[in-house]
């Protein structure tokens, strides 16, 4: 199936729902790793919105990327609770381990706040990280 067919299928899947835009954007992001200009255009047509409206929504939320990034992503929580448990002291080593190969992204809270520092890779969560454990996670990402 070509990507434009897939895109049309995603739009058709959700079109009848109330507030269909966010579920569509989630599926598009998951399928293509981003919501690019072409997708925005197709979604706008499908939902009878202007492209500006769709672009406004896409650019508002942290979860939607403009361009796909093929690198593996490690999300590290750097909110208050993880700061209180020393996440900032791990960041130098983490950045070194990541280099150009892995994308480190900051997330504000994974909800494991008594057991930080915490990280997320895909849908898998990791808690009680120290420098060695986090470095290992990044290297294996």
């Amino acid at each position: 199936m070509s990507s434009s067919q897939k895109l049309a299928e995603i739009i058709a899947d959700h079109k009848g729902r109330e507030g269909a835009l966010l579920p569509i954007l989630h599926d598009v992001q998951k399928e293509f790793g981003c919501v690019d200009e072409n997708s925005e255009k197709a979604i706008a047509e499908g939902l009878n919105l202007s492209r500006a409206e769709v672009h406004g929504v896409v650019s508002f939320y942290h979860d939607f990327l403009k361009q796909a990034d093929p690198r593996p992503v490690v999300q590290i929580c750097r909110a208050e609770s993880c700061k209180a448990r020393g996440v900032e002291a791990l960041m130098d080593d983490a950045n070194k381990a990541a280099g150009e190969r892995v994308r480190l992204s900051t997330v504000y809270c994974l909800g494991l706040c008594s057991s930080g520092p915490n990280a997320r890779i895909g849908d898998k969560l990791h808690a009680r990280l120290d420098s060695a454990a986090l470095t290992k996670l990044i290297e294996n990402a």
């Binding site: 909110a79 208050e80 609770s81 504000y108 809270c109 494991l112 706040c113 008594s114």
Partner: peptide, 8 residues
């Protein structure tokens, strides 16, 4: 949408 750090 429990976004506050320290809440779970």
């Amino acid at each position: 949408d429990e976004g506050d750090s320290g809440t779970f």
